[in-house]
């Protein structure tokens, strides 16, 4: 009986705190014609948390996303700072030209939206959004997203199934349109900070050349994605 009274007394407080949450309808479109997005991690977080920032070193959690498409460690990190998250909304890869819609409820204090997903086939390229301030004004907002380079791996453009962070090479070309026998575009990563990706080079030799990638298929220009956010 005492407990019931406590619950009743608490109920209005709970409602009041919910009034601070926002409902975000988020649609992400892969604008490219030949580049896949690995499972997306979308998070609303406080101003203290950062998934990546241009000009800074990638965290091991971001490196795992950018080199092998693994969002689990970043998810753990974001959970530890009470972020609100959507993990892998497309249930796998988001193919070229495809869109995915999802919803995210962000609680008070989680006023910034970030996302990341590896670009395939690349060595350590990712599409990202860094700390977009979520507006309090309801409406529809559209943001173009660029491709970034995590700066953690040389862009050799060799498709070799590399499956662990730090291992040279590209895990896979999901479109099954890569070549073989490339000698490697480069073996060094000169800029080891997060930066705008210079794009894949590729070549026109499916059985050799420097790159395993096709220069008419695997290049892109920014933006590589568009995000539409409906703030309710």
């Amino acid at each position: 009986m005492m407990k019931m009274k406590w619950m009743a007394a608490l109920a209005p407080l709970v409602v009041a705190s919910n009034a601070w949450s926002q409902n975000l309808q988020i649609t992400i479109t892969n604008l490219t014609q030949g580049t896949y997005f690995t499972p997306l991690l979308i998070a609303a977080h406080s101003s203290d948390a950062v998934m990546f920032r241009v000009g800074q070193y990638a965290s091991p959690e971001l490196q795992a996303i950018a080199e092998v498409g693994d969002i689990s460690s970043m998810g753990t990190l974001l959970t530890s700072v009470s972020a609100n998250m959507v993990e892998n909304p497309a249930d796998g890869l988001l193919a070229p030209g495809e869109s995915i819609a999802t919803t995210l409820e962000n609680l008070e204090g989680n006023d910034y939206l970030s996302l990341a997903s590896m670009l395939l086939p690349t060595n350590d390229g990712f599409v990202g959004l860094d700390s977009w301030m979520i507006p309090t004004e309801p409406g529809t907002y559209t943001i173009n997203l660029n491709a970034y380079d995590a700066g953690t791996e040389a862009n050799d453009e060799i498709v070799n199934g590399a499956g662990a962070p730090g291992e040279p090479g590209i895990p896979v070309a999901p479109g099954m349109d890569a070549g073989i026998g490339g000698t490697g575009v480069t073996s060094t990563e000169d800029n080891t900070l997060v930066h705008i990706h210079r794009g894949n080079l590729g070549d026109d030799d499916p059985n050799g050349g420097k790159s395993d990638l096709d220069n008419t298929v695997h290049r892109w220009l920014n933006p590589v994605a568009v995000v539409t956010i409906v703030v309710n």
Partner: peptide, 8 residues
């Protein structure tokens, strides 16, 4: 239709 990758 998608964004154009540019000419090589």
């Amino acid at each position: 239709v998608a964004a154009h990758p540019g000419v090589v």
